[in-house]
């Protein structure tokens, strides 16, 4: 294998497999949003601080602006678009976010939901402190986090 400026990758996102040619320099978030047209994940910073681009990558929460798309060759990725079950209902976290008014503008929400899901997948009965710690990598500028923490806590019970 020799270095290349672009390559063809195969990625499974929300159960669907995509094969695309992508430049090596393209960040995973741009690949997801611009190449795959899955625009639920967002970009809120350019330094890996905000977490709006958080996705679950091979079972682990990551910021998709902190990986190259080519690194994801062969990866399984879950984004907010795959969160709700197919029967038209919302995922418990999505419903709880709405019930607790845990979102206003909604821009951080997809990343926040993925962080909450990763947390509860690993620790279904997370405490308030664990929830805060689990959401530390996601910036919300609307809510002050209080309602988000309450929303996750309600599902954690």
């Amino acid at each position: 294998m020799e270095p290349q400026t672009s390559q063809t990758i195969t990625v499974t996102v929300n159960g669907e497999t995509y094969e695309r040619e992508v430049e090596a320099r393209r960040l995973l978030i741009h690949f997801i949003r611009d190449d795959l047209d899955l625009t639920g994940s967002h970009v809120g910073c350019d330094t890996g601080n905000c977490g709006a681009c958080s996705v679950i990558y091979n079972g682990q929460l990551v910021k998709s602006c902190m990986l190259l798309a080519v690194q994801a060759d062969g990866a399984r990725i879950e984004t907010v678009e795959g969160l709700a079950p197919e029967d038209g209902k919302l995922h418990a976290l999505q419903q709880s976010f709405s019930d607790h008014h845990a979102l206003q503008c909604g821009y951080c929400t997809p990343g926040m939901l993925m962080s909450a899901k990763a947390l509860l997948d690993a620790n279904p009965s997370a405490s308030e402190e664990e929830i805060r710690k689990g959401l530390q990598g996601n910036i919300c500028r609307c809510t002050g986090y209080w309602n988000i923490i309450d929303a996750v806590k309600a599902v954690a019970r």
């Binding site: 949003r33 899955l38 625009t39 639920g40 994940s41 967002h42 970009v43 984004t79 907010v80 678009e81 969160l83 709700a84 919302l90 999505q94 419903q95 976010f97 709405s98 019930d99 008014h101 979102l103 909604g106 821009y107 929400t109 997809p110 939901l113």
Partner: peptide
């Protein structure tokens, strides 16, 4: 219930980008 939420929690909002 907030009317905006259903689309926003599913990543179905449409922001300019």
């Amino acid at each position: 219930p907030r009317k905006e939420d259903k689309r926003l929690v599913q990543g179905q909002g449409v922001y300019f980008d």
